[in-house]
Design a binder for these strands. Structure first.
Lengths: 405, 405
DNA sequence: CATATTTATTTCAGTCGGTAAAATATTTAG
DNA sequence: CTAAATATTTTACCGACTGAAATAAATATG
């Protein structure tokens, strides 16, 4: 009757409560027991018990800092609880086309160290991928005098269609084979639990745990890299759809029989806002054959090139259309546009924001807030780390037996 | 600490179990206790207790019919349980532009009688609307020799933006005022609990309880009336978004700065597939000034009018584009295209289905099934009734005290 | 300073929902 | 008729949570 899958676990009632307490502490930073009780609408007695378990497991700790009481200054002061950052270490990885990025974080999500390595091949066999990952992890740990045995969890972000619940990769641009169950490889090659997820979902997790989605229950994260991705958080949890793959925002159609997309279809959003699409627009008529990156186009636009300006403007228009459709369909609390260093000002300009607003059906309620988040280039790896911390938390809480004082 | 809202109730653990049992019985038609236990992954003892409560409340009953045992024929035979259809009566209403439809159903959803009445005004004041509804209900009940005091619940479907949890109408095309709390009016004018909901959501409920969505956890219902609507069922529950309003599928944009929509924006799906849009296309160039309905256009197309054919074809193309976007974003188990009598063959032709398929990003998993459901013109009222039955079930289960044998 | 008051947390004795195991019921096979 | 099989009910118990009381730790007040 027990049916815990490899990497996604079902929790019993008590562990679920412990985990909710842990999440509350994480989202608040530091918080007293009584505040947790009222936030979770549960009794103080339950919180006492749950926090005692978490403290004895070393996941959280009491701190000294002064918390102000509700009303006056009288009464027993609240004791603040905080994550115990030292309790364990998690690695987050992102495998991109030519680069593998690793970040090591503590339990609070603080960066311990990070590392990048070039990849020889954009696509690798599953076994090759895992040993490449292992190598990258070893290099990273070495930087701070650790070995990979110190890791409590490893989270791996890939582009593609992935069933995270089973560590099953239907398809990924980094893997040469389809429909691979990574669990056996992980068990053989890696010294601790590892989790494979779609990269856009990981960024959504990062926003939820550490970023602009902290504490929110329903929000969307639009990721901008070479293409656009979407992570959906509904009711506090990642929504993955029936097949467990990420939403294909980049391949929603914004134009009937429109521009040709890399996916082979026509009119995809990505065929208008993806890097390759912009570069194609600039070069197709021989207007500028030296365009290599979107930054180049920005540079041109800034120096008064009308063609560059109009190419970027159209991308923004299409992007705005796509985002307003998301709002019309999901009616989220908030939309976070998340991108790494790269230039994407053309996708969050005032014109684009206006276009989004004008594309959303009027309600009396205000529009969901659209937040733009410029991350460093470790965004993806940090997202992986966020997911890793969550998964490891679940494992650790599950590891707590039914023990009292 | 108790915080039951007016019409949406939060259930304690035990009532939640009773309700899950009830839902299981409803979705299975008739089912034995042991099957319920295994379907809900709970112990037979729990089912014995829950079903005993439901039987004593008159919501379900044991029936004689023979159920086949799992393996052989040996052993105590299973006792089948079924809804007790006679236990109470629910009314479902749909208020449309010029018509109010009422259907009376028993607890199993069987139609007892139905009734329609013309409306003098498409828009009414809240008080006027409720007394019109009361009148229509009285007429309906009278047809079968009942009075509205016999009703256990009344469910009202309106087009517009509605917060069903609070019976609060932000805006509706049938109501002259905005932001109306209907609870006081309901309490004053109607003799039993009443529930107000968005009409597309109601159809989704009907599909879930009685229709093609029976037993499914994640599906979308696209409704076709004069415009298009969308009901979203995720994890077995209606998804309503942050503001509690329905998804605005009809106003997702399918064309940058495209055709003008009644909502004032440009490029909305509805501006290409809504009735008024098709008629506009046919008449705008004076091609056919006598077009009144979509059926007229179909008639023309069938008699070889190229213009009519191309108008319908484009609507189908745009519709297909919109639906494939839904699949790309939600990855549902199934999509149900639900329409009443009216002609919408142009939206479910083979060409449209092909277009949808070609607009969905390939995965190894098969495409979600697209089911077309042609309802009678009581579709909307039946949807309301389905929601009413669900809400009344909740109320009845809640009414069960903590009573044993 | 001693005491009352206030607020936070813990302890303790239930309560409640659910379950395993035993008991009971009802059938067929032999 | 007896044994075996299967379904349901009963019973004894478990475990998570809670309310109330107890305890802890501060401030206000005379």
């Amino acid at each position: 009757m027990l049916k815990s899958k490899a990497s996604v676990v079902s929790l019993d009632q008590r562990n679920a409560t412990r985990l909710r307490v842990l999440e509350q502490i994480r989202s608040q930073g530091s918080v007293s027991r009584i505040d947790i009780a009222s936030a979770l609408e549960t009794s103080p007695a339950t919180i006492t018990s749950a926090t005692a378990d978490l403290i004895s497991a070393g996941l959280i700790k009491e701190i000294e800092g002064e918390a102000q009481s509700k009303s006056g200054k009288r009464g027993r002061p609240r004791v603040l609880l905080q994550l115990d950052g030292q309790s364990f270490l998690v690695a987050g990885l992102k495998v991109a086309r030519q680069m593998i990025s690793v970040i090591l974080v503590d339990f609070e999500g603080n960066e311990v160290t990070s590392h990048k390595a070039q990849l020889e091949d954009a696509r690798m066999s599953p076994a090759n991928l895992i040993s490449t990952i292992r190598l990258a992890l070893e290099d990273t740990c070495q930087q701070v005098g650790l070995s990979i045995e110190h890791l409590a969890g490893i989270s791996i972000g890939l582009a593609g269609q992935i069933d995270a619940a089973r560590n099953f990769v239907h398809w990924s641009s980094s893997v040469t084979e389809r429909n691979i169950d990574f669990n056996p490889l992980i068990a053989k090659e890696l010294p601790c639990p590892a989790f494979v997820e779609n990269d856009a979902n990981l960024v959504a997790k990062a926003e939820q745990l550490f970023g602009l989605g902290k504490g929110l229950k329903n929000f969307l994260v639009v990721t901008i890299e070479h293409g656009v991705g979407l992570g959906i958080v509904l009711d506090g949890r990642l929504y993955r759809g029936k097949r467990g793959c990420g939403a294909e925002f980049g391949h929603t159609k914004v134009q009937l029989d429109g521009a040709l997309c890399q996916c082979g279809q026509r009119g995809c959003l990505e065929a208008y806002v993806g890097d390759y699409a912009l570069i194609r627009e600039m070069t197709v008529t021989g207007h500028a054959d030296d365009m290599q990156t979107v930054s180049d186009i920005h540079t041109r636009a800034n120096s008064g090139d009308d063609r560059a300006t109009s190419v970027l403007a159209r991308a923004g228009q299409m992007f705005g259309l796509g985002v307003s459709n998301l709002i019309n369909l999901f009616d989220p609390q908030c939309i976070i546009v998340s991108g790494a260093q790269m230039s994407f000002e053309h996708l969050c300009s005032a014109e684009v924001m206006t276009r989004i607003q004008n594309g959303v059906v009027n309600v009396d309620a205000p529009l969901p807030e659209i937040k733009v988040h410029h991350w460093g280039d470790l965004m993806w790896a940090k997202g992986a780390a966020a997911y890793g911390i969550e998964q490891v938390s679940i494992l650790k809480v599950k590891g707590l037996a039914a023990n009292a004082s």
